[in-house]
């Protein structure tokens, strides 16, 4: 993980009660790692070095162990993401029904390739594996919502509604 050279403030959880509650659910401190990572990501938008150090301290292990966990899961981001995350399904049904055209549309219109974020932080584009909604392909997940059976026109209109 690269630090961008800026001296950042040390991360702390804004909701210590929630942290307490997470710990109370497990007999083993280390088990709280994943829920804490999700909590941190919902607060910060991504998992920074500082988050990793903070969680390592909280669960009593080395930061490399937390990093091991973070890097394993694709839904934990180690880089800052845009305000809205567009995840286009790439698996068979969606691919056959024009998922690539959806990706190309975003790339053309907003000038970001898969994995990139717009300069104004509006969108981050990602290609993902099966979202489990093959019957209504192609599927795009924007933030936490599924949008199914999309055509390029519908998709374009949909994107306009996100600021």
């Amino acid at each position: 993980m690269k630090s961008n050279g800026k001296l950042k403030q040390r991360f702390t959880f804004s909701d210590p009660e929630r942290v307490e509650q997470i710990f109370s659910q497990y007999s083993d401190k280390k088990s709280a790692t994943l829920p804490l990572l999700h909590l941190a990501q919902s607060q910060e938008g991504y998992i920074s070095n500082s988050v990793i150090e903070n969680i390592a301290d909280l669960v009593d292990c080395h930061s490399a162990v937390v990093m091991d966990c973070v890097s394993f899961y694709t839904m934990l981001y180690t880089k800052p993401q845009g305000r809205h995350i567009i995840q286009v399904c790439q698996t068979l049904s969606c691919s056959l029904n024009g998922a690539d055209a959806l990706v190309d549309h975003v790339t053309d219109k907003y000038e970001i390739k898969p994995g990139e974020t717009m300069a104004n932080d509006r969108f981050t584009l990602m290609k993902v594996e099966c979202l489990g909604s093959c019957g209504t392909a192609p599927v795009v997940q924007i933030n936490k919502e599924y949008h199914e059976g999309l055509s390029t026109q519908k998709f374009d209109k949909l994107l306009e509604s996100f600021e």
């Binding site: 490399a64 990093m67 091991d68």
Partner: peptide, 16 residues
């Protein structure tokens, strides 16, 4: 630690 998973996994150390 083992970074990432599956085909992409590799042995790594934190930069700092």
């Amino acid at each position: 630690f083992v970074e990432a998973r599956g085909y992409n996994s590799k042995i790594a150390a934190l930069e700092d």
